[in-house]
Design a protein around this nucleic acid. Sequence first.
DNA 1: ATAGCTAATGAAACCGTATTCTTTAAAGCA
DNA 2: TGCTTTAAAGAATACGGTTTCATTAGCTAT
Lengths: 361, 361
Amino acid sequence: MKKNISKRITMREVAKEAKVSVATVSRVLNKSEYVSSDITKRVLQASKKLGYFPNSIARSLKINSTHTIGFLVSDISNPYYITIARAVEEVVKNHNYNLILCSTENKKDRELSYLELLFSKNIDALILNTTGKNDDFIVNMNKTIPMVLINRRIKSPDFIGDVVDTDNTKGTYILTKQLLELGHRDIFVINGPRNLSNAQQRMLGFKQAMLEYSITVDGDYPFQYEGDFTLDSGYDAIMHLCSLPQKPTAVISLNNMMAIGALKCFKALNINAPEDLSIVSYDSIDNMELIAVRPTVVSFDINKFGTRIGEYILERVKDNNIPNREFVLEPKVIQGNAVGFPTDNMKNRDFNTPVLNMVGK
Amino acid sequence: MKKNISKRITMREVAKEAKVSVATVSRVLNKSEYVSSDITKRVLQASKKLGYFPNSIARSLKINSTHTIGFLVSDISNPYYITIARAVEEVVKNHNYNLILCSTENKKDRELSYLELLFSKNIDALILNTTGKNDDFIVNMNKTIPMVLINRRIKSPDFIGDVVDTDNTKGTYILTKQLLELGHRDIFVINGPRNLSNAQQRMLGFKQAMLEYSITVDGDYPFQYEGDFTLDSGYDAIMHLCSLPQKPTAVISLNNMMAIGALKCFKALNINAPEDLSIVSYDSIDNMELIAVRPTVVSFDINKFGTRIGEYILERVKDNNIPNREFVLEPKVIQGNAVGFPTDNMKNRDFNTPVLNMVGK
DNA sequence: ATAGCTAATGAAACCGTATTCTTTAAAGCA
DNA sequence: TGCTTTAAAGAATACGGTTTCATTAGCTAT
């Protein structure tokens, strides 16, 4: 085991080389008080000569801080989160904190095991985009670890921390309103998991807009599908749509990944937008201008989003004894080319069976 | 500082609660030898009651292993690396290893600081997609840390580890050949950084194919641009192309991000493919079937890529005393719609100035 | 000259765990 | 009975740092 691997240099060896004590070496390397200049020089020389590198594991154990911030996102394949993570990293890096990024894939078990992992790895703080299925554990963990929640909230009144979110309700409201004003009434909604606050709020915006046109959206509403915010579930939603006897004239996806999945299904089934169906989506899609069929989307300034997250979390690391805060981003509409007027013959159309195999959908 | 934060439970407290020694608690939790069943029960109960969680920092210090593998990629915004990272994680997770992902953005300084960070964090192994600018440091670090290189090699004969790569030369050779066979002779190549082995090899494949048609590609070759594998540099490459007095009839991008940048520039300048220019690219583009203008690409089975990386690195963690290995993936062509025959009037065309602002390019 | 202070260093304790070394008690055996 | 063996548990040490505490030497003030 572990052959071909030489031993790491420790402070002890540097101390011996410089003929001083370990304490002195530590003081030199941390630039703390009272070290004479010639000893400083000797230590630095010895350190360099031996190729010493601090062992931050040992350091962390002693000072009880890893200078590491956990970032648990639901879906790392969503460029949205990568962009945010980079913005956050940019902020915290300037304060010598590091990010450790994990992806739950929206799965309860994965989230739990990552939470445990991060906790045992002694992160100093946590940025969390939760699946909403481990609230108890999180609230408990929250007793020792400062947190910032993104996009998804936790109901518990015991939760201490900030929330950074987009204006979910407003976002879907705007999108839905636009469809309604074009004349659409039969709007198929691809929902997210019912237990997530953002899915709930987005659904609420949809419902509110529909209600203004006297359409009640409830459990009986025929044009809905509960996805899980993944690309695949967006694809499946459209497959489900196709199986309906009566077709809708427009589709609203409550996140970008499901919209991409939906577009892939459009392509596979030869559904044209906006001729056959209009489509709009919450959250923008990466490299959208290159896409042939572009949904109208509400988009957000996610760099600002990330920056704010970074600021919040740093403040909480310093002192978690501050009131809970909330930061909500305003939606901005980006018009696509996949939205048009509804026509009567849309409703009874039958869509083709797949022309492509689903390989690599 | 750090108010509102309660203390973590340690083994000591569990031991006191269960009225046993710390050693016994450790033995119970690690399921090591010789613990009676009733003490086991008592310890587990106490542990649960107090909500004990192991401190893996302390554990790591003691056992001298963090069970963590560093993964340093050049560009985390390239979905290519995300996919690979997930495949790697899938493999190592089954052996209780965790991945810590960092992005160098192809910058020497960032790479160095991450290398130092990972080293000081005592990673057990490193997967590295190097910028090629810190070879000395890496070779030195390699003395204590097993490594697998991906896509980019290190020249030093002292390097111990494996290489997992795509067949760079063959990939570009195939793409270039295809263009040549269609009649293209003036092919604009968007190169990567000259110091990177993969950029070199890809350039080599291009040169070889061109040479078969008696075209010598050297420093004087007019149709080339040295990008840095980022989206922006692909955009800039096309801007440069437009400034040339004599235009090429096709473009080959040596990676996917630069191809995306190129396509964005096409869009901004109203350049049509394949009417104005044909375009092909090394590495496939995410969600390619949705893109309006699709370059022909060579693509790779990156799940297999990731799996192999995971296997290699795990083996090296166990025993680094094995000969260097190499695993090279075969390219597979995916035909796009942005490749056509060259025409004579392509060469003297002037492209429009941007019709779009570069916002969000 | 002596008490008191400060700069500079070393010695030692500690962080939370794993593990080796001891000790204890019970069991096995002649 | 007395000795050896073995299961079970505790005590002590080590991992590589940081930090407190102690020590020394040199200097100032009275």
